[in-house]
Design a protein around this nucleic acid. Sequence first.
RNA 1: GCCCCGAUGGCGAAACUGGUAGACGCGCCGCACUCAAAAUGCGGAGCCGAGAGGCGUGCUGGUUCGAUUCCGGCUCGGGGCACCA
Length: 707
Amino acid sequence: ANEQVIDGRGWRSGALVETRELTQWFFKITQYSDELLSALGALDKWPEKVRTMQANWIGRSEGMLIRWALDKASAPKGQSELEIYTTRPDTLFGASFMAIAPDHPLAKAASEKNRALAGFCDECRRLGTSVADLETAEKMGFDTGIRAIHPFDKDWLVPVYVANFVLMDYGTGAIFGCPSGDQRDLDFALKYKLPVVPVILPAGEDAKTFAIKDKAADGDGTMINSKFLDGLSTKAAFEEAAQRLETTKLGKSAVGQRNVNYRLRDWGISRQRYWGCPIPVIHCDDCGIVPVPAKDLPVKLPEDATFDKPGNPLDRHPTWKNCACPACKKPARRETDTMDTFVDSSWYYARFTNPTSETPIDPKAAAYWLPVDQYIGGIEHAILHLLYSRFFFRAISDSGHGPESNNLREPFEALFTQGMVTHETYKSADGKWLPPNEIKIVGEGAARTATELSNGQPVEIGDIIKMSKNKKNVVDPDEIIGHWGADCARWFMLSDSPPERDVAWTEAGVQGAGRFVQRIWRLIEDAAGKAAPAGAPMPSAFGDDALALRRSAHKTLAQVGRCIEGLRFNVAVAQLYDFTNQFSAALGKSSTGLDWAIGEASQVLTKMIGPMMPHLAEECWSRLGYNTLLANEPWPAADPALLVDDSVTIAVQVNGKRRDELTIARDASNEDIQAAALKLEAVVRAMEGRLPKKVIVVPHRIVNIVG
RNA sequence: GCCCCGAUGGCGAAACUGGUAGACGCGCCGCACUCAAAAUGCGGAGCCGAGAGGCGUGCUGGUUCGAUUCCGGCUCGGGGCACCA
């Protein structure tokens, strides 16, 4: 944190802000709302989903702040106007009430002389805190008796209600209600018998017959019942109303002002718990809030805290919180709140660029390494961790603690959100969750049944869900590694599902991976005995089978390389299975130069499995006679000449239906392909004697005969 | 309520920019080896049909010589946000 604490919300960068009587600490992420939102567009290596989620979370809306004069006769003393926020100034002529939050200053002022109103506000606060049934909470309002003057008509008085659905911390905590144009306002108006004047005529409706019943017209349309706005589209009406409000004065300044609002709130980092970094400030009766001097950082947690009671162990620790004020040296108190753990995860990647640096971040190392080229994490971090990190990285840079680089704003260049490992769940007869190693499963498919190992009681087999300690559907990694080996576990997880999707951990699946591990070992063993010695010169000619093996090896190499680059590991695995099948078959053949091709294939296969099964690959490498570490070997290059075949197989369709296929020289002309296709027996039969009207030939792919 | 994503065999899935749907694996079936089992090897299979053939990528229209892929409407499933003015 910055060493300067600045009061209120006039904060710039890096400071902790005290905002309430009860000290709660915030980071002013809202300072960056606009940048965090607009910069999302440039994160083209992030999933669209995550960018959308962040954009929604930041929640930008363009609207207007409008000041309504209050009718003097009805307003409490000292209150002369009410400022509201709206995104729909175009619907102002449909206004039939104002609504303010129970905590709005005007509500408080009015409550002083109105006990019933004060009671209503208290009731709202009480209900408001039990968030549980916010969803079903009924809209409630209370007429304050105050009247506001319509900005477009000084003789039009609008009643001011306190309403439970208006939030103090969004906009200005006050709205105007247009029942015909907003469903929530309509519900409220119907309940309190307020006027409903249609102002938007949806396309296709007739102005003479159009009426609002219980469904508001909240879309676009043409303005009606709106005086000078009549006939305009909603968009044009917004502009017209906005311009008039901007140029009309109330007192010294304009009635209306265009304004951008964000849903994003400041980041409350205060936690009343032991496990977290202490917020490094000291409370002094004379000096107020004083930052802990840099030389005394970090503030360490006491090691003798007790956890026998609920509440914050730091707060009730007998001595830890007592200290001297760094400014005046008088006795003072430490802040006992600790930081949200998301604070730490917001900059660890920058620290990692030089973990021994004296300063939190080494500007040179950070500039050299950052941004992170490829960040991988779960989708559960889509908003909080990833948004906080984007903010924090900017904040540390703007406060002079970041990388030595002018325009490094984003910490993570590319983002990949991987799926989770899931497992079946098991429940005992008395409703307790059971771990997989305490049950026995018999039968297959729909006939599978499970029993408890300890007592033979029947067990219910449940859904396949994310592994969690709570549901006990967990397989201990140590057990997996002990039984199957780490390579097998890796291989299974990579092979089964694309990495962005969940993967279901199943015993059968791991067995399959285990078999493949054995198979590779046997294959390399066999191949080592048949291969030309390492370093033997490449023969000048190859027989058909030797050439086929080489082609297969090089094609697989090219594909696996592409798949790994694209994080498509399951496809890479499939290619490796495929190649292994072909390699095995080739070992039984005899062909000119086959021994050399086998040597090459062994080497290539070993290198390809290296990133996924490093232990096995090293063993294979050694078995092949190399005394180096495979991990230090470069990724092999595929020979482009071996990636294309001399002949291609293309499908032949008649009227869009596949009838046969055709193998022909790769460089055959369209005429040759067409002629060969028309001669095929299945084609002749399907044509039933008709002449082709049209023949489409797509070289190397397909022939479609229309007729 | 608003926004986003997805739907392919018994299962996990693959299919480059509209061009042979189901690669590869799991499971299954058959065979070989074995006293037997496991392991291993070989072979089979989308569904219907003896076969020829027909039907098939959630449903339904459309564009196209050709649609899992593009467009419209719908159904179901998953996720995010949610009195946001």
